[in-house]
Nucleic acid binder design. Structure first.
Length: 473
RNA sequence: GGCGCUAUCGUCUAGGGGACUAGGACGGGGCCCUCUCAAGGCCCAAACACGGGUUCGAAUCCCGUUAGCGCUACCA
């Protein structure tokens, strides 16, 4: 068997949707696994809605995910001549015919059919036009579309994910393949291009299964065997409906902005509707490629669970050394409008890594440690202050005075803990009552790394300053 | 309405006639650790949609019901 040739063929009418990204990923995985070729084709035949900006966003999203293409991007709009020639060939070979029905006539028929509760079907009026009819209409300059003559009988294929899927030709219309302006309709453009590009496996969303019988008819009419089809299930929102904007973040770029790692996104997307079997969850790229197979693809739709995505991102985050995190953290600090204040961020990153699931969360915590909490304590911090009342300030003042007396050279986690324990003991305080106010003063939150480590990260001068400021506030 | 697809814990899934007391992961609950929260470790609750077949035996195969989703354009 020759190496597979697969393609991802988005239309640039919107952002790169996570469903599209997953389709691209499956295609890419198959190509990389088999030594095949992954082709990127931009389906820009809808002139109204396609934009250059959307194309750029899709390319960027793919690159961000590490999905690299071997050929393309090819623009479908450039192949209009071939599409038209294919349509004309259908007419010549009588597998297609010219239809002179006007849009108005068709719309009227459709309106009637829908009022009756049924579905509109083309009545086949132009199927049997005589050559004379056709010539006179042509001479009169009547516009026409080209339709395909839908054969009777079964049209079926062995889908790589669903198994055998079968349609009856008589349930399908004689569909239009060429508009009256001479441009191709989707189904023709796809088949014409897939033939030209020698595509062997068409991996796409389930929403295309009802296009497949039409495309199979076109393959045969154009004298080619259909490729292998693999229809991957839809991605749903938490409410079980097809994932869309109202579910929140659906564009790949949204997740990039949220601080998700490409590797985590790729891993998560791969597992949405595909499983290598067994218990594998966290898989690096090489393993994903090695294990990928079309038979592992689920046939039912999957709900997109952002909580699990974040968990997975946290796994990648904690496995990534601070040095590798640094550039992304610096970028994110820039977004927050905050500087590194001339200090090394590496120890700070290490201190807060375990408590972050995304780069955004990580950078926020770094910013707090470098610059102090912005604004008032969060809800829990404020609640703690209320609960402790005057003791909060008193304990904080006490600790500040003790720590201020420590020589900077002794300002290490171990010595700090020793000192703090001694202070608490000496004043009959529970360790927590001595430490929590410090945590709140330094971070504005009741959550952080151990207080002694926090103090070491923030440093002697800033720590004492912030504690004293909070003690009088 | 028609056509098509699908149905295992709340979610992602393993399983593909006996290995099932249905496994793992997220999320939830509990315990350990502990100055807090995470992380980590241990434990718990939680599912084969329903009804018929086939079979010695069905989560697994077949049929039906129900439900969900998709498509139903001179959009892609």
């Amino acid at each position: 068997m020759t190496a597979p040739r697969v393609r991802f063929a988005p239309s640039p009418t919107g952002y790169l949707h996570v469903g599209g990204a997953r389709t691209a990923l499956f295609n890419w995985l198959l190509a990389r696994k088999t030594g095949g070729t992954f082709i990127l084709r931009i389906e820009d035949t809808d002139r109204e809605r396609s934009t250059e900006a959307h194309t750029q966003v899709i390319l960027d999203g793919l690159r961000w995910l590490g999905i690299t293409w071997d050929e393309g991007p090819l623009f479908q709009g450039a192949f209009g001549d071939r599409h038209r020639a294919d349509a004309e060939r259908l007419v010549l070979e009588r597998t297609g015919y010219r239809c002179f029905c006007t849009r108005e006539e068709l719309d009227a028929q459709r309106a009637v059919a829908e009022r009756g509760g049924g579905r509109f079907r083309y009545n086949g009026r132009c199927r049997a036009l005589t050559p004379d009819d056709i010539r006179s209409r042509l001479d009169a300059g009547q516009p026409f579309t080209i339709r395909v003559r839908m054969p009777d009988g079964e049209i079926a294929w062995d889908d790589a994910v669903h198994g055998r899927i079968s349609f009856q030709g008589h349930d399908l219309d004689d569909f239009v393949v060429l508009r009256s302006d001479g441009t191709a309709i989707y189904n023709l453009a796809v088949v014409s291009d897939d033939i030209e590009m020698r595509i062997t496996h068409v991996i796409r969303g389930d929403d295309h299964v009802s296009n497949t019988p039409k495309q199979i008819v076109l393959y045969r009419a154009l004298g080619h065997e259909p490729p292998i089809f693999a229809h991957v299930p839809m991605i749903l929102g938490a409410d079980g409906k097809k994932l869309s904007k109202r579910h929140g973040a659906t564009a790949v770029g949204d997740y990039q902005n949220l601080g998700i790692f490409p590797a985590a996104m790729r891993n998560f997307l791969a597992l949405l509707g595909w499983s290598p079997g067994g218990d594998r969850e966290i898989m690096p790229e090489a393993e994903l490629i090695a294990l990928f197979s079309l038979d592992g693809i689920q046939s039912k739709p999957a709900v997109f669970d952002t909580v699990k995505l974040e968990w997975m991102n946290g796994q990648y985050l904690s496995a990534t050394p601070a040095e590798e995190l640094l550039p992304a953290v610096e970028t994110q600090l820039g977004v927050l409008g905050v500087s590194a204040a001339g200090r090394s961020l590496l120890p700070v990153i290490d201190a807060v890594k375990a408590r972050s699931r995304t780069i955004v969360q990580l950078a926020e915590q770094v910013a707090v440690r470098v610059h102090g909490p912005r604004g008032t304590p969060d809800d829990k911090g404020a609640a703690l202050m209320r609960k402790m009342g005057p003791a909060f300030q008193a304990n904080l003042q006490l600790a500040a005075n003790e720590l201020a007396a420590m020589p900077p050279a002794e300002w290490t986690p171990d010595r700090l803990l020793e000192r703090l324990k001694a202070v608490a003991d000496g004043h009959g305080l529970k360790l927590g009552d001595a430490l929590q106010p410090i945590r709140v003063a330094l971070t504005g939150s009741t959550v952080s790394e151990p207080v002694n480590e926090l103090l070491a990260i923030v440093g002697p001068i800033a720590s004492v300053d912030r504690m004293r400021a909070a003690a009088v506030a």
